[in-house]
């Protein structure tokens, strides 16, 4: 035991741990990514650039951005409320509540599209009522937003809960005892405490719609068979990649053409 700090590992252990982590990531994440690149290069950059400039692709990008802009704030608001209720208070059935929040993750994207068709489709539960009032949900933006919110529902809450649990409620109680009201405590104590995670979570949650739209089966079911719209939707998997990392796209383009 030489003069190293007692709260960190020796250089050898450190190097081994880093090597193991990088090895795992290299094997499971980097290699698949390299495969995508090598496939992409085989096709050249031309088709990708052409695809980017079609009106369909641009419309799809706009639509995806709009959906993210609507669904992320909704999920963030829910996530903060849920994690506040779950981590700061004791009540019976807490595990049940958390499990219900988790559930959308386990529902196959294949099924989540079907759900909204069963609800709002022409023969669905609310189908007749919607037709009567000339409201469109599926085959339109509200349906895609609903599906996205459903699929990404657990994201923010589930990432905030462990953090807020670990932080406990001492800080909040101190603030209250000093005369702060609930909102002041929330704005000046809880939010700054969780700000780092919050921004990361927002980042993840913003990405989530891309990923979930990449799991586009649900949106495809929602958007239905109307030719133009459907084509733009079926390219969601493409546009999600276009917007996040252009060079990854050609392969996904090919996929969406299948």
């Amino acid at each position: 035991m030489s003069g190293r700090s007692p709260t960190t590992e020796g250089p050898l252990a450190r190097a081994l741990l880093i090597a193991a982590a990088l090895g795992f990531l290299g094997f499971f994440l980097l290699l698949p990514l390299l495969t995508v690149f090598s496939e992409a290069l085989r096709q050249g950059a031309g088709p990708f650039l052409d695809a980017l400039h079609t009106a369909d692709a641009l419309a799809a990008i706009r639509l995806t951005l709009l959906i993210a802009a609507i669904s992320v704030p909704l999920n963030v608001a829910f996530g903060i409320a849920a994690s506040w209720a779950i981590t700061k208070f004791q009540f019976p059935g807490k595990a049940l509540l958390i499990t219900l929040i988790d559930l959308p993750f386990s529902v196959s994207p294949v099924v989540s599209g079907l759900i909204f068709v069963l609800l709002f489709g022409a023969n669905g539960l609310f189908g007749a009522w919607l037709a009567e009032h000339d409201l469109k949900i599926i085959f339109a933006v509200p349906g895609i937003v609903l599906a996205t919110v459903f699929i990404t529902f657990p994201f923010v809450a589930r990432e905030l809960i462990p953090l807020m649990l670990e932080q406990g409620k001492d800080d909040e109680e101190a603030a209250i005892s000093l005369g702060a009201n609930g909102w002041q405590t929330f704005w000046h104590v809880t939010l700054p405490n969780t700000a780092g995670a919050c921004s990361m979570v927002c980042c993840c949650a913003t990405r989530a719609p891309w990923a979930s739209l990449a799991r586009s089966r649900s949106s495809r079911a929602i958007c239905g068979a109307r030719p133009t719209r459907c084509r733009s939707i079926s390219r969601f998997s493409t546009t999600s990649t276009i917007s996040s990392a252009p060079s990854r796209s050609p392969l996904s383009l090919r996929c969406s053409r299948w």
Binding site: L25, L29, L30, P32, L33, T35, V36, E39, C204, R207, A208, W210, A211, A214, R215, S216, S237, T238, S240, T241, S244, A245, R248, L251, S252, C255
Partner: peptide, 18 residues
């Protein structure tokens, strides 16, 4: 950043690559 890749990559692309 690489860790988030599976969130951003369309799953079908991941499946084909794997």
């Amino acid at each position: 950043a690489l860790v988030d890749l599976p969130f951003a990559l369309p799953t079908a692309v991941a499946g084909i690559a794997l």
